[in-house]
Structures are given as structure tokens and as C-alpha cells.
Amino acid sequence: YFQGQLNAMAHQIQEMFPQVPYHLVLQDLQLTRSVEITTDNILEGRI
């Protein structure tokens, strides 16, 4: 994955969860590489 793709995914998640800091979303995406998994992590309070 290149950074631009991760940034696009992070923006997509931020639209759904504007209360979660962008850098935390991006940090999780770098591990998961998945909008779905990061979204689940937010919903389950891991982020």
C-alpha cells in the first residue's frame, strides 16, 4: 500500500467517525490495511 491509498482510506473513515483523531485512524490503518477492520476497531473502542 502506498501512503496516498492509506490517506484516502483514513479520510473515508473520518467521514464516518469525525470524532476520532486522523492520526489515530491512519496509525491503525497502517497495521490493518483495511477500512473494515479499522472501522470495527473504532466501534469496539480499541481506538
Rank of each mutant, 00 (worst) to 15 (best):
Phe2Thr: 15
Thr32Lys: 00
Met16Glu: 06
His11Ile: 12
Ile13Cys: 02
Glu36Thr: 09
Val35Met: 10
Phe17Lys: 02
Gly4Ser: 11
Ile42Glu: 00
His23Arg: 05
Ser34Met: 03
Ile47Leu: 13
Thr32Val: 02
Gln3Pro: 14
Leu43Ala: 07
Glu15Gln: 13
Gln14Asp: 02
His11Ala: 13
Val20Gly: 02
Phe17Pro: 00
Gln5Thr: 11
Gln12Tyr: 13
Tyr1Ala: 14
Val20Gln: 03
Met16Asp: 05
Leu29Met: 03
Phe17Gly: 00
Val25Trp: 00
Ile37Leu: 12
Leu31Asn: 11
Glu15Arg: 14
Pro21Arg: 05
Thr32Asp: 00
Val25His: 01
Leu24Lys: 08
Arg46Val: 06
Asn7Ile: 15
Tyr1Arg: 13
Gln5Ser: 10
Gln27Gly: 07
Leu43Arg: 12
Asp40Lys: 15
Thr32Pro: 01
Thr39Ile: 15
Gln30Tyr: 14
His23Phe: 11
Arg46Asp: 02
Gln27Ile: 11
His23Ala: 09
Leu24Val: 12
Gly45Met: 05
Ile37Ser: 07
Leu31Gln: 10
Gly45Lys: 06
Glu44Ala: 14
Asn41Ser: 04
Gln19Ile: 05
Asn7Ala: 14
Ser34Val: 03
Gln5Ile: 13
Gln14Lys: 12
Ile47Pro: 02
Leu24Trp: 08
Gly45Glu: 04
Val25Gln: 00
Val20His: 04
Gly4Val: 11
Val35His: 04
Asp40Ala: 14
Met9Glu: 04
Asp28Glu: 03
Ile42Met: 03
Glu44Val: 08
Phe2Arg: 04
Leu26Tyr: 10
Met9Pro: 01
Ala10Gly: 04
Met9Trp: 14
Met9Thr: 05
Gln30Arg: 10
Thr32Arg: 00
Glu36Lys: 13
Glu36Phe: 08
Gln27Pro: 01
Gln14His: 15
Gly4Met: 10
Gln5Asn: 08
Gly4Cys: 15
Met9Ile: 08
Arg33Thr: 06
Ala10Ser: 04
Gln19Thr: 11
Gly4Phe: 08
Leu43His: 05
Asn7Tyr: 13
Phe2Trp: 15
Thr38Met: 03
Leu31Ala: 10
